[in-house]
């Protein structure tokens, strides 16, 4: 019993210390004026790395999810003769929920894990130590551009996801199942609010971008510089950031769309 309590206490302390280290890392990486010695090249390269390389998985998943949504939505709506509301249903589902959440989960799997593994390997091969010896703060040169790239790329990726998913829904709903194109688009236009739906979705995606990239970069820096350490850290990135995205999504949804 006593050892159990001891174990619980130690785990609690470890978790608290982890949060503390992660907070310090974020503050030290983002605090302070931009360092022009490195130029914009580092940020652009990271944007390319986390943003452009994630496009394929985002676009393909987006199309498929849009198609499935349209198919499922149609089978329900057609029973009530309401299939003309398909555009409204699909777009609201995507903009408010599925777009940001699924894009963030994919982003965690594709870009987050890669960031962790890359930084972990830089640590294992003493590159981070070498940077410190040369007089470069790795938090500035390695963590900062990666954090900003993730934070900037995530909302854009979520919007790309929404766009192609709606096109996927059009392909299934309008072209295949013969929903009237005019009512599909006009219903969508009438029901989607810029502030309520689009902007809230962008805010969600931004928040997810911060959390996923933060977890990924922190896990990389905090990894044990061994093969097992890096693989554990990579797994942790995907698991923690997926859970964090889902939990935060509930919180944000409650705040944004909660019943008064």
């Amino acid at each position: 019993m006593l050892t159990y309590l001891q174990q619980l206490g130690r785990t609690g302390l470890d978790v608290a210390a982890g949060f503390g280290r992660a907070g310090i890392l974020l503050a030290q990486a983002l605090w302070g004026p931009p360092d022009w010695r490195y130029g914009p090249g580092l940020l652009l390269r990271q944007l390319h790395f986390v943003g452009v390389y994630s496009l394929v998985i985002i676009v393909v998943s987006g199309v498929l999810i849009g198609m499935v949504l349209a198919l499922q939505g149609y089978t329900v709506l057609v029973r009530f003769g309401a299939e003309s509301a398909l555009g409204q249903m699909v777009s609201l589902t995507l903009l408010r929920e599925l777009g940001p959440v699924v894009a963030a989960l994919l982003f965690a799997g594709r870009a987050g894990s890669a960031l962790t593994a890359e930084i972990g390997l830089m640590k294992a091969t003493e590159q981070l130590a070498a940077m410190e010896m040369i007089g470069v703060d790795p938090l500035r040169r390695v963590a900062r551009p990666r954090l900003w790239a993730g934070i900037l790329a995530m909302p854009i990726l979520a919007q790309v996801f929404n766009m192609v998913a709606i096109l996927g829904a059009v392909a299934v709903g309008v072209s295949w199942l013969d929903v009237d194109a005019g009512s599909f688009w006009s219903n969508m236009q009438a029901s989607v609010q810029l502030r309520e739906d689009v902007l809230n979705g962008v805010i969600k995606a931004f928040a997810f971008g911060v959390v996923v990239t933060w977890i990924a970069v922190f896990e990389g820096f905090d990894a044990d510089p061994t093969p097992e350490g890096i693989s554990t850290a990579t797994t942790r990135t995907v698991v923690y950031s997926s859970l964090a995205v889902l939990a935060m999504d509930f919180l944000l949804t409650a705040i944004m769309f909660g019943v008064d």
């Binding site: 010695r37 091969t125 003493e126 130590a129 040369i134 007089g135």
Partner: peptide, 30 residues
């Protein structure tokens, strides 16, 4: 640390830079 140099066991070259850029790195920075 600008007054110190260290040769790491693994070399610790930055893998995303060429040999030339690795050696030029401290100069460009400082």
């Amino acid at each position: 640390r600008e007054r110190m140099g260290m040769l790491f066991q693994s070399g610790a070259l930055f893998t995303d830079l060429s040999v030339y850029e690795n050696v030029a790195f401290p100069l460009r920075l400082h």
